[in-house]
Computed example of a mutant assay.
Amino acid sequence: MQTAKSDWFDCGVNLFSLQFAGKEQQIWQQAQQAGVSNMLLIGSDLAESQLNQQFCSSHPACYTTAGVHPHQADKVAADWLAELRQLLSLPAVVAVGECGLDFNRDFSPRPVQQHIFASQLQLAKQLHKPVYLHERDAFATQLAMLQEQQINHGVAHCFTGDSDQLKAYLDLGLYIGITGWVCDERRGQSLQQAIQYLPLDRILLETDAPYLLPRTIKPRPKYNEPALLPAIAAEICRLKQLDSQQLATACHANAHRLFGLNGEAA
């Protein structure tokens, strides 16, 4: 059962989504009231990454990624990589991404996606930053690229795959981000089974707010938000027979370790 004492870290929030426009501070306050003490904001392009960094500069419990999502891969400016490098030097910017491959929607041509992804993987290695990975219908290609670049430092954001894919990411040394997908009785069955193989020292919790509203929440709100992270935690606790405080403590330690927070080695 969820307890009021649990202290959560939401490792995936799209705070500057249009659904949150003008309500960013309210979303953060509601998260705190729900026991979510830290948030990692997701940068899908350099403009959003900059907005995230500005928010984090006045909210010390918040951090951000900076990078280019595969959907935005064909929209980068000529000097995008230099701009990204500069962003990654700023306080509170703790990971490269959201980066990866998306062969489901193909909003950017696949060769362009792979080029932009490879550039970000190389930059992450140069700067000793973890990667914040997106993948949809591109697992084999993405895994091959991660292996080629010898990536062993990052998180599979919003993991929705099966046990074999989970084990492949774990073998690389990656952490696994779990969202409300695990609460979906229709689409989440493979993930629910894979959760059994996920060690407590490799799990991160994410809402991916405002997306992926957990289906276990009734009545259903208009959108997902960090304040609803405890619902995801409750489902994981049920599946893995964990105490909520045990899960919360592990997720905080994992986030601090991966992102090098509070002086911990990354």
Rank of each mutant, 00 (worst) to 15 (best):
A73H: 08
R85Q: 15
V93P: 10
S49F: 06
D106F: 00
G12Y: 05
Q25R: 07
Q19R: 14
L90T: 14
F55T: 08
D74Y: 10
S89R: 15
S58W: 04
L101C: 00
C99P: 04
A78P: 11
Q32Y: 07
C56P: 04
Q54E: 10
L81P: 02
A92G: 13
G12M: 02
G67F: 09
A66E: 02
E24I: 01
L15A: 09
Q19T: 12
D102A: 10
L15F: 06
Q19Y: 09
L41G: 03
A95Q: 03
A34V: 01
Q32N: 12
A21K: 14
S37N: 15
V36K: 01
F16Q: 12
Q53C: 11
G97M: 01
Q54K: 14
S44T: 15
L88I: 12
H69D: 08
G67P: 04
C11Y: 03
S108V: 02
Q32L: 08
L41A: 06
E48N: 11
H69Q: 04
F16S: 06
E48A: 02
Q53E: 00
G100N: 13
T64S: 15
G35K: 00
L41Y: 10
P109V: 06
G12R: 05
G22P: 00
L40C: 04
F103E: 13
Q86D: 11
F55G: 00
A77I: 12
W28T: 00
L46H: 04
